[in-house]
Write a protein that binds this DNA or RNA. Structure first.
Length: 289
DNA sequence: AACACCCCCTGTCGGC
DNA sequence: TGCCGACAGGGGGTGT
């Protein structure tokens, strides 16, 4: 499901239910997701108050009152919903999918937060807040897309000497953290950069960014900002925590639009689908060079 | 080191 | 209708 706009949308939806609430009981309906729950997972969460809910890359991080953090990753198909009388949110009906409700956090205000994940590519960890950045899951993460350090010279430096296609480099969480397949395709389209271009081919001999590369930071930030404003993209199961759907998928210009006409005015190109590193890339061969 | 490929798991969709 | 393969928003491990 989730790239930065979806994860941030989930965070905004869950924050009113979680921040300031105390976890009174934890239901674990299986012993693992993608990773096993630690043996004392429920015990360590029970009785803890949640101080803040944050995002880092595609992770949700709930900081607890004992110095630990509940770290949550939604994988491809993870979602949360809120049940019961929870302040500030609407009640969402239980779905038919309840077989994939794996974790329930019961909260002291009478509501609960339920994690559902059919494919179980998501996971949850308990880690000390103080050393979170040193944990293997966080240690190598790159810059956040909205961080001002993400500019043309940052990308020129990161792409210098790299033979991998720019599509693969933008998906690499060690360079930029939070982009996924959808928004990489959309950002490359908006920047007019072919996904097949080698990273190094976007850097000039003097080490500065080419004009094409210099268009990427704004393209990335704009598409993420627009997606965020739309509540993310709902391809099949992404929902906001109140159950409503994101609608940015209606604004895709290339993603999942193979065979469609390029939306650029005056372009008579057709959106193509290719496979790079085993994943679909969508682009317009006429606009993106 | 950097890159391509495979896998984890379940559900859905299109073709036959 | 049913079966089967391809594919899906992520990421970690392995082999070259």
């Amino acid at each position: 499901m989730p790239e930065l706009p979806e994860v941030e949308t989930v965070r905004r939806g869950l924050a009113p239910a979680l921040e300031g609430a105390t976890i009174t009981r934890v239901e674990l309906r299986r012993k693992d997701l993608r990773l096993p729950f630690s043996p004392d997972f429920a015990r360590r969460l029970t009785g803890r108050r949640i101080l803040a809910l944050k995002c880092r890359a595609k992770y949700l991080v709930a900081e607890l009152d004992n110095g630990e953090a509940l770290v949550m990753h939604l994988g491809m198909s993870g979602s949360f919903r809120i049940d019961g009388k929870t302040p500030g949110v609407f009640h969402r009906a239980r779905d038919k999918n309840a077989a994939h409700d794996h974790v329930v956090l019961h909260l002291d205000h009478g509501g609960s937060v339920i994690y559902n994940d059919p494919r179980r590519f998501g996971f949850m960890l308990l880690l000390p807040v103080a050393t979170l950045d040193a944990d293997p899951h966080f240690r190598d993460l790159g810059v956040e897309p909205f961080d001002p350090v993400l500019d043309a010279s940052f990308l020129a430096n990161a792409f210098s000497g790299r033979k991998a296609p720019v599509k693969a480099l933008l998906l690499d969480q060690r360079l930029i953290a939070g982009l996924g397949n959808i928004y990489v395709c959309e950002a490359l389209y908006r920047a007019g950069v072919s996904p097949k271009r080698a990273g190094a081919a976007l850097v000039r001999a003097d080490g500065k960014a080419t004009a094409a590369l210099a268009r990427l930071p704004a393209a990335i930030q704009t598409v993420l900002q627009e997606a965020l404003a739309a509540g993310g993209s709902s391809l099949r199961d992404h929902r906001q925590a109140d159950g409503s759907l994101g609608y940015f998928q209606h604004s895709f210009r290339v993603y999942d639009r193979e065979g469609a006409a390029c939306p650029a005015s005056g372009c008579d190109g057709t959106i193509q689908r290719i496979v790079q590193s085993g994943r679909s890339t969508f682009y317009c061969p006429r606009c993106q060079k």
